[in-house]
Design a protein around this nucleic acid. Structure first.
Lengths: 236, 236
DNA sequence: CGTCAGGTTGACGCGTCTCAAAGTGGGTGG
DNA sequence: CCACCCACTTTGAGACGCGTCAACCTGACG
């Protein structure tokens, strides 16, 4: 069974944008929205494409419209840490540094709303409501980062995988996903690099969770059989 | 040899505050500074005191004036992850959530500038310059968090310790610390919980680095003998 | 039906954790 | 001023979880 995620949504203008309700622009009124629209353009990337790379000049901000991206940092010797996955509504560029702090690439096809750094900075300069919105998103990101640190530093492999599944389920729920099947558009290697594990350990842990009746493994996703157990592991 | 850190600095008004140049208030002009001062009060905490605890109602924001705090999250079973150390100039409360996301306690004596949540929120509400300053600090914090994730997920014990030392050196340098001795006001257990290791592993790794001529261990700090080597380990 | 990328499984080794004991320095009270 | 105490740190020995290396499986696609 093939599991898909947020396919087929389309838009015409900012006002009826699919992520209007939870993206950066949620804070704006109609007039501002029009002005912002004039600063943005939609871009698409296909599976695997790199949207921007760590340490290159940060010329743009992005807001995700459709699809999922992996955000990661590389060590000189090639070790990779995925610091997060970006979903529709997520804003990229919060760090505000002149170079990108991490790389981002598309997992599956993605559609983004692109803004020039300078343009958006000028737009926001004197709009407290917009700035507060940015703060809100940054705060949320910071909270996620803090929880991720606990996961990476203090949890076992099994707890890591369970936390990831629960966290992913909750994020998808937050953008309106329903259904008893949890799509996992990223591969095992991405999950491993997100959790600070190897692909083999992730695979073994999935198998163990399935053997224990906590999940069922499907192609492209899983199904949570024993939610309580998974949540316990994830909180533990 | 006892190593001390930022002892003895005093202030009278916000205008000649010790952290005036790099705290939140750096963005404010004289008039605003006076208004902000009326919203704040100085508080002190002694060694080991908890300033605020995870999951309690977040009634205040804080700006660190003197001393060092550890910021940490606890798992139900007592495992602890230190997500960062707060130094003079650091602002606490960026997450903006109604409950504190983590606990903070004093390592040694600390002096803080305390603001009521509501008061500061009102103050900032319509001051873009202040909001942008908050954004800047949040961005910096986010960058640090991202790097911390790489450290926790993808580095060996030796690399972790070296990264910690280099990072700590740079942060102290950033607030004006000079001298060839690097003070470490936090204990080994704090370092372990910051790096996602056990105290024994941290201790062993310090010893190894000393044996290899990279550092010299002093009471309350270290001295970096082979900076290049330490930096190499830290970047690796 | 062959190919290929991604996923799974197994055997083994290593790095870090665990448990235990001894060392060290600062502070306190006699 | 010394002796004791206590928290913190260091060191050692052994166990174990996860990484490594290698082989095999599976499903999608041509």
């Amino acid at each position: 069974m093939k599991v898909s995620l947020l396919e087929g949504s389309r838009w015409q203008t900012c006002a009826d944008c699919a992520v209007r309700g939870f993206a950066v622009c949620a804070a704006l009124d109609k007039t501002e929205l029009w002005e912002l629209a004039s600063l943005s353009r939609h871009i698409q990337h296909e599976q695997g494409a790199t949207v921007f790379a760590q340490a290159t000049v940060a010329t743009s901000f992005f807001s995700v419209l459709e699809g999922v991206l992996r955000l990661y940092k590389l060590l000189p010797d090639g070790r990779r840490q995925i610091i997060g996955f970006a979903l529709p509504g997520d804003f990229l560029g919060l760090a505000g540094s002149p170079q990108y702090e991490f790389s981002a690439d598309a997992i599956g096809a993605v559609t983004l709303c692109q803004f020039s750094r300078a343009g958006l900075a000028r737009f926001g300069e004197d709009r407290p409501r917009f700035l507060r919105r940015i703060n809100e998103l940054a705060g949320r990101e910071l909270t996620r980062a803090n929880e991720h640190m606990v996961l990476l530093g203090r949890r076992s492999a099994e707890e890591k995988v369970a936390s990831f599944l629960i966290g992913w389920r909750d994020r998808l729920a937050g953008i309106g996903h329903v259904g008893e099947v949890l799509p996992l558009p990223m591969g095992r290697l991405d999950i491993a690099d997100y959790l600070g594990l190897t692909i083999e350990t992730v695979s073994r842990t999935f198998t163990k969770l399935e053997r224990d009746g906590v999940i069922r493994i499907l192609t492209g996703g899983i199904s949570l059989l024993d939610t309580a157990r998974a949540e316990a592991l994830s909180a533990a």
